[in-house]
Write a protein that binds this DNA or RNA. Sequence first.
DNA 1: ACGTGTGAATCTATTCACAGCC
DNA 2: GGCTGTGAATAGATTCACACGT
Lengths: 230, 230
Amino acid sequence: MSESRPRIVPEATVARLAVYLRVLAGLADGGRSSVSSGELASAAGVNPAGLRKDLSYLGPCGVRGVGYSVAGLRERLTEVLGGERSRPCVLVGIGRLGSALADYAGFASRGFQFVGLLDSDPRTVGTEVGGLPVHPAEELEVVVARTGATIGVITTPAEVAQAVCDRLVAAGVRSILNFAPVALTVPAGVDVRKVDLSVELQVLAFLDQQRDGSAPVVTALRADARESVR
Amino acid sequence: MSESRPRIVPEATVARLAVYLRVLAGLADGGRSSVSSGELASAAGVNPAGLRKDLSYLGPCGVRGVGYSVAGLRERLTEVLGGERSRPCVLVGIGRLGSALADYAGFASRGFQFVGLLDSDPRTVGTEVGGLPVHPAEELEVVVARTGATIGVITTPAEVAQAVCDRLVAAGVRSILNFAPVALTVPAGVDVRKVDLSVELQVLAFLDQQRDGSAPVVTALRADARESVR
DNA sequence: ACGTGTGAATCTATTCACAGCC
DNA sequence: GGCTGTGAATAGATTCACACGT
């Protein structure tokens, strides 16, 4: 049961709402009861005006001349991001990166929850990571069916990523987060999001090189994934 | 010594150039000598016209009516992204995520190279990850000085990330990739890029929720980190 | 007076469509 | 004929500036 009028929230805003939620949790722990956009923005590493616009997509949730109620805003963001319940999520490929992600399930950030871990290495299968047992890769379909997972995370080697993806989709998963360095092909209606850690480093290396004096090519350096510099 | 005229390359383009480079490496291994923008684009998961525009920032590098030379384009991209040499890079926090990244150094994608690993856990110090020994955190300044690293990657817990960042900056690091879920404060002239894995999952969960029928808030679903759906 | 909420302006990025060359 | 290279058009995100409520 959500009340306020349904507006359109840009994807870039959704990502920042998750950050605001985390900052608010910290403020609440510190006993704070209200915040201004300026303070919240600086803690989140964004521009205050941008933060206010982000929040405005959820309808008015602050008090003019005063600021935002920490508890109230936190509740509103949780409602919007998490929905009523966390969405069940399976993770395929429990290597180092997969394990790191599984641990994130511990402080289960709102919105998702790992309900199944899968791996093809017999030495990993049967162990526990982040409080969950690792199942053999063959059981992928069974685990997805049993848990009703609609989200899948792929942290396998690149060679098997497409095959895993196909099986996830066939099993009913509709949203995929892909950490393998390949472009996945999926049928329409399935949403794939990609994170490429090595590319992040290469971009940073490129920008670093640019400033080192002898820059062969010049970049437009824009505030993209860049944080506040004060 | 780089020849062609220096243009301005948008950051979003730089990220994709790294992807093209990886795809080209695969094509070269497969014995291919030329590719069309359409084929390359589909393998990279982007729009063909966008790919051509990306490449156009480097000056003409294809042959009209024919396509791109795999070897030639690969060389050009390597030159632009990697500069002449890979940039030295230290990694602080050798937990699961840090180890996963250190392994990436193995197939050292062009542009960067890990030259120092640091951790504060005595059980981790002294071990080897990805072929490199892990040094105690106290030696951070020494390692940065000795290796001449200008890039630092932070994969520590959030609580210590700002302190590590301050030490990196003081030691001379000018570009930082931050995986800790906090907004880092740095002096002007230092570039911080942030990757927040938990936020990626929360965004995916939100989008997934949107399509599940009862959507409390509607999103503008745009082609951002989304891959090709064919 | 203070700080939110938001239209307008700006800047960036993506997509289209076609001219130009092989 | 086919495919690159690119200006023009479109869409998206960020920032500004100020009106509005308390």
